[in-house]
Write a protein that binds this DNA or RNA. Structure first.
Length: 559
RNA sequence: GCCCCCGUAGCUCAGUGGACAGAGCACCGGACUUCUAAUCCGAUGGUCGCAGGUUCGAAUCCUGCCGGGGGUGCCA
């Protein structure tokens, strides 16, 4: 990556300057290479001289001059100019830029990959909504962020697994079971009510009907307080199936649907279960204390504000206990090097104690990354869509996907920083018009595909094209934009912020549309230039398809 | 009360401590005999919530305040 090359060059220059007595021997900070906001400041810049000025007790501009004078030669750099108050601005050589078209074509579908992960195993766990109902529209945000982050990490050289935790144990499962049993027995004419804290949705009636068909009347007289396991587990299986369908519609595929229940089941080979092992570890380290009839995780010892209950006075483990066992399983048993959890803002209070718990079971808490995304509100144009379980106008994820399409849904969910609350305009997302950024980007891809198809028809070929002919500003700007993809992948993998991708895709599309307007590709009177531009189009198509591919958005051939 | 996130153009939002703060949409004005006008070019639009502080340099870091959202010991 050119940016890394520049960084290395600057460091070399700084050491050379020190060796030649042009710069006092000081500790070099990491050499950062920035992208200047203004084009006249070149393609890249470093402010290292400004950072060195104090330690070196020298004028930063003078340092910049000396460093610039010591920079190793490079075919990629046309100019490295000191600029006040103490920058070095780099301008890339046009010939080098043009040559990158061949480099991108050679990289092919792997263009954009970076070697950052070194094959380390990372698990991305996302959505993991209770399988007690269909996914809501808000879950779509977690789905898009998690799925795309996983793709980005893959591109960055990690070995990635996508996981959904199926909560098929615990309080909510009990409530689900009792609701389901009530609905099921109602079908046999029994006068039973669903629990007050149960799930009132119509889907529970549908589910009960389906189970009645499958299981017959064998549980028609079961006690309402003790839902039969077969009924409950079958009910959860059906819900999980539907969740899987919803995910598929959004284009998300999981590697693993992990059952919470399995944490309590002994593994073959006498290893015991993850829950016992995790609790034993905590107990062994003195993190479990008993008070008020319950068992607590002494998180205050790890700097938390308060302790947290792991085993209720009823003897049942809390969700927190389950989650500790789950993370114990992820790290200690399955051996992930890095675990990323994607949670909605309503789980924010759970973050710091989870990190403390991970530390308590002997895992470096930095190996657990918890991404909290803020809540989503939906609207149609000016009209706010209220999400209310009670009012029954709950917006489902599948409704959103059906209404606006998977491509637009993913693009929109992704385009905002996880830290920001977002407004999702269903009307805009569905609009097949210029104001919809999804189509803008896809149209760029379709346009390129169109040119390439026309080229083949009219006997044009990129074969033997000489990229040195590419010198038009619009051509070079397009190349510059394409070269940003690997940098972006690296940055997103480090920051775990996939929301930059849609913005990049838009910029890339803009660069292509500008090129399209300014430069005619297929010109019978200029065959060599046409061949070179066809190469450029090929590279642009690769890059755009990769950006779309990382987002899980389709790259259409025609629109 | 305490904890977390946010506050940037009319709207929706970007903005790795750097040089004169950006995009899309909306609005206004232009550009189709040419590979898809779902496009392009231009104009308008800003006390970066407020006040301090750190720094050579702050939208970005720190503190306080104001406003919005979320959370807050045996729900998940």
């Amino acid at each position: 990556m050119i940016r890394d090359d520049l960084s290395a060059m600057v460091e070399t220059a700084a050491r050379a300057a020190m060796d030649h007595g042009e710069l006092p021997r000081v500790v070099l900070p990491e050499v950062t290479i920035e992208r200047p906001a203004r084009p006249e400041h070149g393609d890249y810049a470093t402010s290292l001289p400004l950072r060195l000025a104090r330690a070196a007790r020298a004028d930063p501009l003078e340092i910049a001059r000396r460093l610039a004078g010591r920079l190793p030669a490079s075919g990629a750099v046309a100019a490295a100019e000191p600029a006040p108050p103490g920058f070095i601005n780099f301008r890339l050589s046009e010939a080098w830029l043009a040559s990158q078209v061949d480099a991108i074509m050679a990289a092919g579908a792997a263009f954009g990959d970076v070697a950052l992960g070194g094959g380390r195993r990372v698990q991305v766990e996302f959505v993991s909504a209770n399988p007690t109902g269909p996914l809501t529209a808000g879950n779509g945000r977690g789905a898009a962020i998690g799925d795309v982050l996983a793709s980005v990490l893959q591109a960055a050289g990690y070995q990635v697994e996508r996981e959904y935790l199926v909560n098929d144990a615990g309080t909510q499962t009990d409530v689900f079971g009792r609701t389901l049993l009530a609905r099921y027995q109602q079908l046999f004419g029994r006068d039973v009510e669903i629990p007050a804290d149960g799930y009132p949705g119509e889907y529970m009636v549908d589910l009960a009907r389906r189970l009645k068909d499958e299981l017959g009347a064998r549980y028609a007289d079961a006690s309402i307080d003790a839902p039969p396991e077969e009924l409950v587990l079958r009910g959860i299986d059906v819900m999980v199936e539907q969740i899987g369908e919803d995910m598929k519609r959004l284009g998300v595929r999981y590697d693993e649907w992990f059952r919470e229940r399995s944490l309590y089941q002994d593994e073959p080979g006498g290893a015991g279960n993850a829950y016992d092992a995790a609790m034993q570890t905590l107990r062994g380290k003195g993190y479990l204390v008993e008070k008020e009839g319950a068992l607590w995780f002494a998180s205050t010892e790890l700097g938390e504000d308060k302790d947290n209950v792991v085993i209720r006075s009823t003897g049942k483990p809390t969700y927190f206990a389950s989650d500790i066992a789950y993370h114990f399983d992820k790290f200690a048993r399955r051996g992930f090097d890095l675990v990323i959890d994607i949670w909605g803002a309503d789980h924010q209070g759970h973050v710091s104690r989870m990190k403390a718990a991970v530390e308590a079971i002997g895992v470096d808490p930095d190996h657990l990354d918890i991404i909290i995304y803020q809540l989503v509100s939906f609207r149609r144009g000016d009209e706010l869509v209220r999400l209310s379980k009670r009012a029954g106008n709950l917006v489902l994820m599948r409704d959103v996907v059906d209404e606006v399409g998977a491509d637009a849904a993913r693009f929109f969910f992704l385009a905002r920083s996880a830290d920001s609350q977002m407004e999702f305009d269903l009307e805009l997302a569905k609009k097949q018009a210029a104001e919809n950024p999804v189509y803008y980007v896809q149209y760029a891809h379709a346009r390129i595909a169109g040119i390439l198809a026309n080229a083949a028809e009219r006997g044009f070929s990129a074969e033997g094209g000489d990229v040195r002919l590419l010198a038009h500003p619009a051509e070079l700007d397009l190349v510059r934009k394409m070269l940003q993809l690997p940098e972006l992948v690296q940055m997103m993998a480090r920051s775990k912020e996939p929301h930059h991708l849609p913005h990049y895709a838009q910029d890339l599309a803009t660069a292509f549309h500008a090129f399209y307007t300014e430069c005619r590709v297929l010109d019978a009177d200029a065959r060599p230039l046409s061949a070179a531009r066809l190469k450029l189009c090929g590279a642009a198509r690769l890059t755009l398809a990769r950006a779309l591919g990382l987002m899980g958005v389709s790259a259409p051939e025609r629109m």
